[in-house]
Design a binder for these strands. Structure first.
Lengths: 266, 266
DNA sequence: GCATGCCGTGCGGTAATACCGAACGAAAGA
DNA sequence: TCTTTCGTTCGGTATTACCGCACGGCATGC
């Protein structure tokens, strides 16, 4: 084996495998996976998979649900995830604003931080009695299919938007997804004037989002707030109202971050 | 090496080390840890620690905060923790009740599930503007120092309580912690009559908790709801009111679980 | 009732590996 | 300027994790 592996020379392979296993369980149905499924998907023998699973069980990263047994994500991940998310400064700062917006609007409110032009949602508050959207946290999302992503793009110069678009390729998610760079730039230009970005069924059919970006002390975009609802519940006047509320919430976050809002930009 | 290790023959050692490292970072200050600290605390060479850290960085289980660099828990853990906690059925069922109780009381409301007589908190809703308590999720807690723990114990027969008490040894946390089995049984007996359990500065100085258990279709205790506040803010009449509200919330959870509430028990 | 898969569990042997030690450039402190 | 400490990199080797194989249990099908 003289060829160059995709893994660095310093990668501990067993650990990387364990993480691949956890990702596989996370993406599998909630009932969990069997040992044989693990050995198949991981391309390793059953006995090797058994050792790996046992290690994860002992550490509470997995737990065995009888009968089967089927393996599911364990409480150690709840523990670590709670600590990790609490230590994101943005989360603490924005939590009360999310709660207030959720009460005011009756919608699901989320906050994303920026990762190289892409949104990573780090918290979510579901309104009581509202539709629950199963949107993941902690994942780098596509920038062009969510309102939060477009609000973040709108804070960047057009050249940067084009670079990011070329990088991720603007894949289609629904029939309304913007898949061409000029259309994306046009949409962003409107968002800059309006003060908030809109996702009109561009990520999921029937789902509508409104988002506004906030900025830190550098004047750089630090993230975005978004409100998510079912499209049929949102007439035009309601969308404008939501836009103003989200915009106001984002400005408040900007203030708490010691930042300065930009003129004529989201 | 013919001696019996504490780890099973099937334990993948590198993976266990990676988990120990994550636990270490989780218990360290929020600013993160340096590579040298890792190699020291883990008892391994710097180069080995470097390989491990690089692996965790590549998988987003850690991220490097400049300068230093200092290593902190990464967004992959936020992702996995979010999925793991969403898949706990109790969490979805109780979420709206937590939110309502939090609004009604202005306190932090938590829900714990039962793990062999011990409470494991799986969700928490902080009231807006209230004091934030940094209580971890997903950890097996001591049963005798929290209101939720005592509410769970109150649902068990005395013999079982004595077994659990012998197992964990009733360690002291504050000067008010109950450290003797007879006193614990007496406290639990009162809780059974009253319908809710109380933690009066037995876990943290100045912190007061009220909790009530809920039950599943077997009639077994499935967990408990608790309300947490600063002691000076809670006169006696307020505590009684809180107890009734938490009790009512727990009964509601019991109903949603298809369970039946017990007579004269928490 | 018997055969037949399939699953989870255990055990050697060996090829793959993760670890140690040493060394280097850079940055911070004396 | 000198010293210390940090993160990083690189061979060599002892450790190891993996594969193949076999066994017991549990359903399913004939």
């Amino acid at each position: 084996m003289t060829d160059e592996d995709p893994v660095s020379r310093y990668t501990v392979r067993s650990v990387a495998k364990a993480f691949r296993l956890l990702s596989m369980v996370a993406e599998a149905p909630a009932e969990g996976v069997t040992l044989s499924e693990v050995s198949q998907h991981m391309g390793m023998s059953k006995s090797a998979a058994y050792g790996l699973v046992r290690t994860l069980l002992d550490a509470d990263y997995l737990y065995a649900r009888e009968p089967g047994p089927r393996y599911c994500l364990g409480t150690a991940l709840v523990w670590l995830g709670d600590i990790a998310s609490r230590r994101l400064p943005l989360r603490d700062i924005t939590a009360p604003i999310l709660a207030r917006l959720s009460q005011q609007t009756g919608l699901t409110i989320r906050v994303a931080r920026v990762d190289d032009g892409h949104p990573v949602f780090i918290n979510r508050v579901d309104a009581v009695g509202a539709v629950r959207f199963h949107t993941p946290l902690g994942v780098r999302e596509l920038p062009h299919t969510s309102a939060a992503g477009k609000a973040i793009l709108a804070a960047l110069p057009d050249a940067e938007v084009e670079r990011i678009a070329a990088e991720c390729g603007l894949p289609r998610r629904t029939r309304k997804t913007i898949t061409e760079v000029p259309a994306l730039l046009a949409d962003i230009t409107v968002a800059r004037r309006r003060g908030y970005a809109i996702d009109d069924e561009e990520d999921f059919e029937g789902v509508f989002c409104v988002a506004a970006a906030f900025f830190d002390h550098d004047g750089g975009c630090a993230g975005a707030l978004s409100a998510t609802g079912i499209k049929v519940d949102l007439p035009a006047w309601r969308i404008e109202e939501l836009g103003r509320m989200v915009r106001a919430g984002a400005d408040e976050v900007t203030g708490l971050l010691g930042g300065r809002p930009r003129d004529r930009e989201v």
